[in-house]
Simulated scan of single mutants.
Amino acid sequence: MSTTLLHQSFGIRDYRQTRIEFTGGVTRFHVEPSEKKVCCPMCGSRNVIRRGFKRREFQASPIGLRQTVVAAALPRVQCHDCGTTR
């Protein structure tokens, strides 16, 4: 699924799909941010260093009768401009 389809289907922008997993009646879309779009959540600067990530799962609209989950790897960043680590 391309980034355009992620946006049209689930409203997800600036993330790319890494894989789809079908387990136990659940369709799980794994996504991660596009490298160019990672920025500081406080000031919006792109002058950041990645400091790992945190996995989060979000319920999405069902596809047919199957439950749908979006599993995102949300980046943890340290900003050089404002000094924030989030």
Rank of each mutant, 00 (worst) to 15 (best):
residue 7 H to W: 02
residue 79 C to Q: 04
residue 37 K to V: 15
residue 77 V to E: 04
residue 47 N to K: 12
residue 14 D to R: 00
residue 38 V to G: 14
residue 26 V to N: 05
residue 54 K to I: 00
residue 53 F to E: 13
residue 64 G to P: 06
residue 22 F to V: 04
residue 65 L to I: 11
residue 21 E to I: 11
residue 58 F to S: 07
residue 68 T to S: 11
residue 81 D to Y: 00
residue 49 I to P: 01
residue 25 G to E: 12
residue 70 V to I: 15
residue 49 I to N: 11
residue 10 F to I: 07
residue 3 T to D: 15
residue 47 N to W: 04
residue 21 E to M: 11
residue 59 Q to F: 03
residue 27 T to P: 05
residue 34 S to Q: 08
residue 24 G to Q: 10
residue 68 T to E: 02
residue 8 Q to I: 00
residue 5 L to S: 06
residue 82 C to L: 09
residue 23 T to N: 06
residue 10 F to H: 01
residue 62 P to I: 08
residue 24 G to V: 03
residue 38 V to Q: 12
residue 71 A to I: 09
residue 49 I to C: 03
residue 67 Q to K: 05
residue 85 T to L: 14
residue 24 G to H: 10
residue 32 E to G: 02
residue 31 V to D: 00
residue 33 P to G: 03
residue 37 K to S: 15
residue 45 S to T: 06
residue 80 H to G: 10
residue 32 E to P: 02
residue 55 R to I: 15
residue 28 R to D: 01
residue 58 F to L: 06
residue 80 H to F: 14
residue 33 P to L: 01
residue 40 C to A: 07
residue 65 L to V: 08
residue 11 G to M: 08
residue 86 R to N: 12
residue 62 P to C: 13
residue 7 H to P: 00
residue 28 R to Y: 03
residue 24 G to K: 03
residue 24 G to W: 09
residue 71 A to E: 11
residue 16 R to M: 14
residue 40 C to K: 00
residue 25 G to Q: 06
residue 5 L to K: 04
residue 72 A to T: 12
residue 17 Q to S: 05
residue 36 K to A: 14
residue 54 K to L: 00
residue 79 C to M: 08
residue 30 H to P: 01
residue 70 V to S: 07
residue 20 I to W: 04
residue 46 R to C: 04
residue 8 Q to P: 00
residue 20 I to S: 12
residue 1 M to D: 01
residue 59 Q to R: 15
residue 80 H to W: 12
residue 70 V to L: 10
residue 58 F to N: 09
residue 77 V to A: 04
residue 24 G to M: 05
residue 30 H to R: 08
residue 75 P to F: 10
residue 61 S to I: 10
residue 18 T to D: 08
residue 51 R to Y: 06
residue 66 R to K: 10
residue 62 P to E: 09
residue 66 R to M: 05
residue 42 M to N: 13
residue 48 V to G: 01
residue 11 G to H: 15
residue 23 T to L: 09
residue 52 G to C: 08
residue 4 T to P: 01
residue 17 Q to K: 01
residue 52 G to Q: 03
residue 83 G to R: 13
residue 40 C to W: 03
residue 66 R to N: 11
residue 8 Q to C: 01
residue 66 R to G: 01
residue 42 M to D: 15
residue 81 D to P: 04
residue 76 R to C: 14
residue 54 K to H: 02
residue 43 C to L: 03
residue 22 F to W: 01
residue 59 Q to D: 02
residue 78 Q to T: 01
residue 5 L to Y: 05
residue 38 V to K: 15
residue 65 L to W: 04
residue 55 R to E: 08
residue 63 I to N: 00
residue 73 A to Q: 08
residue 45 S to N: 11
residue 38 V to F: 07
residue 58 F to P: 03
residue 60 A to G: 11
residue 8 Q to Y: 02
residue 11 G to C: 06
residue 57 E to T: 04
residue 28 R to M: 06
residue 32 E to L: 03
residue 66 R to F: 01
residue 82 C to R: 09
residue 42 M to F: 10
residue 52 G to H: 04
residue 31 V to S: 05
residue 67 Q to V: 15
residue 9 S to Q: 09
residue 19 R to Y: 07
residue 14 D to M: 07
residue 2 S to A: 09
residue 40 C to I: 00
residue 4 T to F: 12
residue 22 F to N: 03
residue 71 A to Q: 09
